[in-house]
Simulated scan of single mutants.
Amino acid sequence: MTALSQRKIRERVEELGDWFHNMDLNGVPTAPNHFLHDYPRNKFSRFEHALPKDLTGKSVLDIGCNAGFYAIEMKRRGADRVLGLDTDERYLAQAKLAAEVLGAEVEFLNLSVFDVASLRERFDVVLFMGVLYHLRHPLLALDLIYESVARNLLVLQTMQRGSDETFGVAADYDFFQQDHFDEPGYPKLHFIEHEYAGDWTNWWAPNAACTQAMLRSAGFEILEQPEAETYVCRRGVRPKDAGAVYPARPGERRDD
């Protein structure tokens, strides 16, 4: 494949509109004026140590890949197979351009988290970055990841609001006992009816306790919280027999 000139890269970057991932495409920054500065590299730098440096022989699924920053980083770590999913065709076009310019062999598909069972494949590492709070059914998404595609590690990043405390929730409460609901560290998922930060897709803002409780409820064991909104988890045993997802019938899913 003939390498694109810097001028051609710049033209194609501009043709694809605003970028949310600021990436260096052979000297061409995709979002140099990003309101979060060098995002998402600045965020990745705070938790990259928690991921395996060598992913040789491993597979990675990036759900909500946007312009492909994390997917490409996983390929740089030697992952054999990297698949990025998004439902925005412009983001997918950006991701494909970034992968082409950077010489990263990454596959991209137009699928949402609610479609992951159709992949019929499990992945060693699942990235779920900046997606949960944009979903109307966030716990269902975690259930589907657990049931369908997660083999080992899940890395979750979500916007959190409210208290960073965690309250020691009892296994059960009497029906008339209500005080614990008012504890700042009790798991709370704040619903956003209209808009937040000018974005109508910001539907939910969990507090820290809620994010952690949702992960455990879906069957994930939290291994590390390298920064406030990011969790590195391992697929464990679901605390209840089934969540919002019915167990698949024999032959409906391939478990590797």
Rank of each mutant, 00 (worst) to 15 (best):
V106D: 15
V106F: 07
V106H: 06
E107W: 08
E107T: 06
E107G: 07
F108H: 07
L109V: 08
L109A: 14
L109D: 08
N110M: 12
L111P: 09
V113T: 10
F114K: 15
D115H: 10
D115K: 02
D115V: 02
V116Q: 01
A117W: 15
S118D: 10
S118R: 15
R120K: 13
E121M: 13
F123W: 01
F123N: 00
D124E: 15
V125N: 04
V125C: 09
V126A: 00
V126I: 01
M129V: 12
G130P: 01
V131H: 05
V131P: 03
V131Y: 06
Y133R: 03
L135R: 13
L135A: 14
L135Q: 05
L135T: 12
R136K: 05
P138K: 04
P138M: 07
L139V: 13
A141S: 04
A141G: 02
L142K: 00
D143N: 14
I145Y: 04
Y146R: 01
S148W: 05
V149T: 02
V149L: 07
V149M: 07
L153A: 09
L153R: 12
L153T: 08
L154V: 11
V155W: 02
T158G: 03
M159N: 12
M159V: 13
Q160D: 11
Q160S: 10
G168M: 09
G168P: 09
G168S: 13
V169A: 11
V169C: 06
V169L: 15
A170S: 04
A171D: 10
A171G: 13
D172M: 14
Y173T: 10
Y173F: 07
D174S: 11
D174P: 07
D174H: 14
F175K: 12
F175C: 06
F175N: 12
F176D: 14
F176Y: 14
